[in-house]
Amino acid sequence: MGTSLRALGAAFTATTLTGVALCTPAAARALPHRAGTVGGDQLAGRGLISPEGVKAPPKTTASSYVIADAETGQVLAAKDPHGHYLPASTLKTLTAVTLIPKLDKGKTVKPSQDACNEEGSAVGLVPKPIYKVDDLMRALLMVSGNDAANALAEAHGGMTATLADMNKEARRLQAYDTVAKTPSGLDRPGQRSSAYDLALIARAGLALPSFRKYVSTKTAKFPAPKGYYEIGNHNKLLWRYPGMIGVKNGWTSKALGSFVGAASRNGHTIIVSIMHDEGSFWEDVAKMLDWGFAARGRATPVGVLVDPVPEKASVVPELTGPARSGSALAGGATALPSRRPVAAVDSGSGPIAAMIAIGAGLLGGLVWLGYGIRRRRAGRT
Rank of each mutant, 00 (worst) to 15 (best):
A10D: 15
T15P: 00
L17Y: 09
T24D: 14
A28R: 03
A30P: 02
A35N: 08
A35C: 13
G36I: 11
L43N: 00
L48S: 02
G53W: 00
V54I: 11
P58M: 03
A68S: 06
T72S: 14
K79W: 03
H84F: 09
Y85V: 06
K92G: 02
K110P: 04
D114H: 14
E118W: 10
E119M: 10
P129N: 11
L136I: 00
R138N: 11
M142W: 05
N150E: 14
L152W: 03
A153W: 08
H156K: 07
M166K: 14
N167K: 10
N167G: 10
R171Y: 01
R172V: 05
Y176V: 04
V179D: 06
V179T: 15
P189W: 11
Q191A: 09
R192W: 07
A204H: 00
V215M: 01
T217M: 13
F222D: 02
K226A: 13
E230N: 14
I231P: 01
G243L: 15
G246V: 13
K248R: 14
N249C: 11
N249I: 01
G250A: 05
A255W: 13
G257F: 03
F259Q: 09
R265Y: 00
T269F: 06
V272Y: 04
S273V: 12
I274K: 02
S280Q: 12
L289Q: 09
D290F: 03
L305E: 00
P308D: 11
P310V: 01
P310M: 10
K312E: 05
L319I: 07
L319Q: 12
G321T: 05
A323L: 14
A323T: 13
R324K: 12
G326Y: 08
A330L: 10
G332V: 06
A333W: 12
A333D: 07
L336T: 04
P337C: 04
P341Y: 04
V342G: 03
A344D: 03
D346L: 06
D346W: 03
G348T: 04
A353V: 12
A353N: 15
M355E: 15
M355V: 15
A357Y: 08
I358G: 10
G359N: 06
A360W: 06
L363M: 15
G370K: 12
Y371R: 12
R375Y: 06
R376A: 09
A378W: 01
